[in-house]
Amino acid sequence: MAQYEIKINGKAHQVDVAPDTPILWVLRDHVKLLGTKFGCGIGQCGACTIHVDGVATRSCSLPISSVGESSIITIEGLSENNDHPVQKAWVEHDVPQCGYCQAGQIMNAAAFLDQNPHPSDSEIDKAMNGNICRCGTYVRVKKAIKTAAEQG
């Protein structure tokens, strides 16, 4: 066990965990931020996507020992009032079915649009390929990203 201070959504948190503890479980079990989801544990599904210094990252495969001073943003910290253009577009297009993967989809899409504000269709498809939606909401995910790109 070791003491860590990590910055999540602009706030410092002290946790006492083993160095190999993935950030996903630090968030969920210790900081009690439950919006970041557990899907596969091996970085294959994208449900656990967060931003680390602005980059979309699979938190299930990121040990706390490697985070250091980096700034972590989770779905809870993406916007103050659920008004990030991606979140607004998600509501507008009524994207979710079960909803479980959607925080990861939104976080992945938000980081992608930060880097590429006016993406082509194929750039969107490629960027979102790591996020599985078992309900098959992919068509709406894409429509929402296009709306967010227009309005962001």
Binding site: L34, E76, V91, G99
Partner: peptide, 21 residues
Amino acid sequence: TKNVDGQKISKGEPLFGLDYQ
């Protein structure tokens, strides 16, 4: 009519069994 949980899902609110505390 939009999903009644749509806003909560996009905010990452704890709605699921795995989130139960």
